[in-house]
Each structure stands twice: as structure tokens, then as C-alpha cells.
Computed example of a mutant assay.
Amino acid sequence: MSEDDRRPDPATEAFVTHRNLLFTVAYEMLGSAVDAEDVLQETWLRWAAVDLDTVREQRAYLVRIATRQALGRLRTLGRRKESYVGPWLPEPLLTAPDVAEDVELADSISMAMMLVLETLAPTERAVFVLRGVFDLGYEEIAEAVDKTPAAVRQIAHRARAHVAARRRRGVASAAETRAALGAFQRAVETGDLQNLVDLLAPDVVALSDGGGIKQAMPRPTVGAEKVARLLAAGVAAWGPVSTLEPAQINGHPALIVRIDGEIDLVVALRVDDGVITGIYTVRNPEKLTRMDRETAVSR
């Protein structure tokens, strides 16, 4: 068998080349790795039927297919979230350390940013992700969302303003987040309530996603003292068989909590100006199935 015979066909080769990009686009639009993988399957089926001789730019064409599939699924997910038990958080991803080196990519998939994206309408979310994160041209985005380039410009402007009003005051460096996480871990492990309070912003918000399967806070908890007491009570409930394991989650330092060796929850933090302003705890076991392997993301 010759080397040419062993090479994948051009359609497969193009899809594999851009797979991580397509997954990241779908994940940022959906907040669900499971649904993003389904979008990839649908994208492949449509891509495999395309006459490649008619495709001018394969990357843009693939992104267009994936975006359209994600938009359709996003509307379905919206109906599903309406009946979700308790706060909904994105499915956390275990990511490689080098993801944090791409500051814009890491910020775009952070828990905090993913929650901001949830406040956008589906088309606004698609335009913001494709323009702001992946730097696609307005003409390419227009084809993906079935709008004119002029309309896309207006949508992009509106989405940027919406996100800017809700996003972090300044992106904390990986070193700042690691330092805050280390101090947070020590305070949690020692049960030092005052140290916990000192680490938290006065208006810190804690969210917990159990999906109706695991016990979790039914609504957001706001305020340093309330959140600190809640965390202290949670740690006491874990017992001596729990371990806190630092990890890279969605491009940022976070903690994986194991009980009897099994993953029970993931804790991600939002850090602004040296203090913790957001704590995101995912306990829903259906969202923790990828914690045993790194997920490749790219721009």
C-alpha cells in the first residue's frame, strides 16, 4: 500500500484538521461538551456530502456548517434549561496547561464568560463568538447566521456592548488565579472562616449546579460572609475522605474534589482585582464525565 493510499481522503483530512476549532465554536455556543460533540457529528455528515471543488475556504465553510447546527441545538437547549432544576452551569472541561497561555481563548471558555454568553440571544451569541473569539469576517459570519453583513455588524456591536457591561473588570493572570486558588484551598481545608471571608469580594456570588441529581444550592448565594459559611458547612459535610486536587478547568486553575477517590464536584473561581468574585460548583454527575481526560480546544 502506497503512502497516498494510507492518507485520509481530502474531506476527512480537512475535518480532522479543524476538528478542535469546530468543537470549541460549538462548545462556546452551547456550554455543553456532549451537545458540542453531537454538533460535530452533524457537521461531519453534511461536510461529507459537499463537493469540495465548490468550496473556496474549507475552514470558513466548516465553521458555517457547525454554527448553523449549533444554532438549531441552542434553541432546543433553551427549552431544556427552562425545566432545569436549580442554577445551570456550563459543563466543565479539563484542559491542557497550554490553553492558559492563549489568554483570549482561556477567557472565552471560562465559566464566568460562558455564563455571560448565556445572557445573549442565540444569533447574538453566535456573532459574538465568531467575531470576538475566532475573528471571522462579517461576510463569513453573515453566511453562517443567514444575515446580511450590515446586520451582522450591528449585532456584533450590540453583543460586544452587552458582554462588556457584564464581563470581568480585568482578566486576571493565571498566576493571580493560582495564588487565589491556593489561598482558597488552604482556607477551605483548614476551615478558617475569617481567611475565607478575607479572600472573597463583598459581593461575591456562589452558584452550584446539581441538576436535580446531587444536592446543590437551589439559588445563587451572594455576600462574603454567607458564602464563607456555606463553604465551611460544605467542607464539613465532605468529611475526612475528601481530597482537593488542583486542575486546569476551562483554561483556568480550579479544584476537583474527590470523595472516596471518586470525583464529586468541580470548583471554578472568578478572580477580579486579587479577590474572588465568583465561585462556580458543578456537582451534576452528567456534566463530570469528561474529567478523566483533557479536552482539546483551539482557535
Rank of each mutant, 00 (worst) to 15 (best):
R6L: 15
D98W: 05
P97T: 00
R258H: 07
E13Q: 15
E28I: 08
V25Y: 03
R131N: 12
E104P: 10
A237K: 08
D209V: 13
L40S: 02
T221L: 15
D264A: 12
I213P: 12
V63K: 03
E13N: 10
A201F: 04
K287Q: 11
A172L: 02
V271A: 10
P220S: 15
Q215M: 15
E91I: 14
S2F: 03
V241Q: 08
R68H: 10
P218A: 09
R80L: 13
M291I: 06
A237V: 05
R153G: 14
L30F: 11
A180S: 06
S242W: 04
L71K: 08
Y280W: 14
T76Y: 06
L22K: 00
V267K: 05
A48N: 01
T12S: 09
A174W: 05
A121K: 03
F128W: 14
L71R: 07
R158I: 02
W47A: 09
P220N: 13
R80Q: 15
D203V: 03
E91V: 05
L93W: 01
E37M: 11
R7M: 14
G137N: 08
F23L: 15
T277R: 12
P122E: 08
G72I: 01
D107S: 13
E143V: 06
G31T: 03
K147Q: 13
E104T: 11
G78C: 03
V171C: 07
V275T: 15
A236F: 00
A268Q: 14
F15E: 05
Q41W: 04
A206W: 10
L265I: 00
D135K: 10
R75T: 14
G132H: 07
V204I: 07
D135C: 13
T289S: 10
R186W: 03
L196T: 10
G182W: 10
L181N: 06
V235L: 08
E176Y: 02
T67P: 13
A144H: 06
A233G: 13
A48L: 08
A161K: 02
R73I: 02
P246H: 12
W238D: 15
L136V: 05
S32H: 04
E189I: 09
Y84N: 00
L22D: 00
L230T: 08
I256C: 15
P253T: 12
V85W: 04
V282I: 15
S208D: 07
Y84D: 07
K147R: 13
E118R: 12
R178Y: 13
G234A: 07
T289Y: 12
P285C: 09
R186L: 11
M111V: 02
K147W: 05
Q194I: 06
Q194F: 00
R166E: 07
A106L: 14
L71I: 12
A232F: 01
E3Q: 08
R79W: 04
V39I: 15
E245T: 14
L207C: 04
T190A: 09
R80A: 14
E124Q: 09
M113T: 05
T190S: 15
A121N: 03
G182Y: 11
V16G: 02
R283N: 14
Y61H: 06
A159R: 01
R299N: 14
L30Q: 14
L207P: 00
